[in-house]
Design a binder for these strands. Structure first.
Lengths: 219, 219
DNA sequence: CGCTCTATTGATAAACCTCAAATACAGTGG
DNA sequence: CCACTGTATTTGAGGTTTATCAATAGAGCG
């Protein structure tokens, strides 16, 4: 749990217990883009999808937030709005803190502030990198990178390969790497025929991570 | 100066003087993407261009950093690398602090830490927003938004309109909104013919900000 | 005045989107 | 267990947007 890195485990319960534990049902919205940010959230179990909409209502996925990951860090500052919408993919357990509580914790355990800064820098790095990708890489490569990312975040080893353990439609993949679900479908079909992946409805298993990695051409 | 917001002006000299003032010549690199981050920088005068390169050497512009703006905030953490390359557009005066100094200042003036967090959240917001744009808006609109952004950051009123007061080639604009300099040229020519802008070599003046704003279609 | 870098413009082509239509799949209620 | 319904997926055809290539013109500099 990146948020608690460098902090004596003895204090973990105090920190976690000062937040509120809640459970969100599948497909429920935790917060909306543009709402005043009140609380920040740590995912314990399940998963959140962070999205933005453009004026015409087209959705893009900014990132997924899985177990041990923090989101809505912006809520520690005054007068901020959530920059994204967060939706639970499945039943998701979270801990949340309001501004005052989190600030108190940050003062008592300065490592929390530093860890939060670290998390925020990672987010920038990630989105800048994907911005570069979107600018310069063709769609096949972007899809491959998307699968590799999701594999690292949600991969579960199975006999057929590494299964991405979240509900993941072609449309979701398209929204994550800015293409159309038609294009995703065509490319996944192709990879399926070559046995690089095994894909079912809303589910992808990567049979040949190395081959997909080659297509992704990550450095 | 966002970094010093909320801090008594009496203390500003101490904070600024604990950094090192330097001047960089036009077109010189201040730091490279991938270098270990040692110092963070405040621009006093002049301007920096922050870029990333992909594997094939294609460049994209992440943002410009003008007077009063901070960059390389990541240098306050341990073992981080600069995520971008910073190049001076013209002779640029900066103040820089090393990790230890900045951390000492942040402890003494906690508002500095909060302001820095605020700056970092703004960066995320900006790049996420531009990621959305790149995903969903056509190139003409992206170019218009780019000009509007640069106008707000670097606009100087003149008799003909608002001049973007940095060296700005078609290629720069293209790198900033992920298109080709050919496309930028075509569109600027078009707008020039309609007298919405007046463009010279490496310089753009927006004669009709409202019209460009309409094309940008910002909410 | 030549050299280099930037800008312009037409022609062509590639990549990818959109539309249409068929099919597959999962869940529901009888 | 099965038909039914609403999504998700697939695939082909055709069209758009924008990149790329080629060639030329213009600007600034020593």
């Amino acid at each position: 749990m990146d948020l608690l890195k460098g902090i004596d485990r003895v204090h973990h319960p105090e920190i976690l217990d000062s937040g509120i534990r809640t459970s969100i049902k599948a497909k429920k919205i935790l917060f909306h883009e543009g709402d005043v940010a009140q609380r920040c959230y740590l995912v314990i179990k399940g998963s959140l999808k962070l999205t933005k909409l453009n004026e015409q209502g087209r959705e893009i996925i900014i990132r997924y937030i899985g177990p041990t990951e923090l989101t809505a860090e912006v809520a520690v500052l005054e007068e901020k709005k959530y920059p994204v919408t967060a939706e639970a993919l499945k039943k998701t357990d979270i801990i949340s803190w309001d501004k005052q509580t989190m600030l108190r914790l940050m003062r008592k355990y300065p490592d929390i502030a530093i860890n939060m800064l670290d998390i925020v820098f990672k987010r920038i790095d990630d989105v800048q990198f994907r911005y570069l990708e979107l600018s310069t890489e063709p769609v096949e490569q972007r899809i491959a990178r998307t699968l590799m990312r999701l594999m690292r975040q949600y991969g579960k080893k199975t006999k057929e390969g590494v299964c991405i353990d979240i509900p993941l439609s072609r449309q979701n993949i398209a929204d994550y790497c800015s293409t159309s679900h038609y294009t995703v479908s065509r490319i996944l079909s192709l990879w399926g025929k070559r046995s690089l992946i095994i894909s079912k409805r809303e589910q992808v298993t990567i049979a040949e991570p190395h081959a997909i990695g080659m297509i992704a051409n990550e450095e």
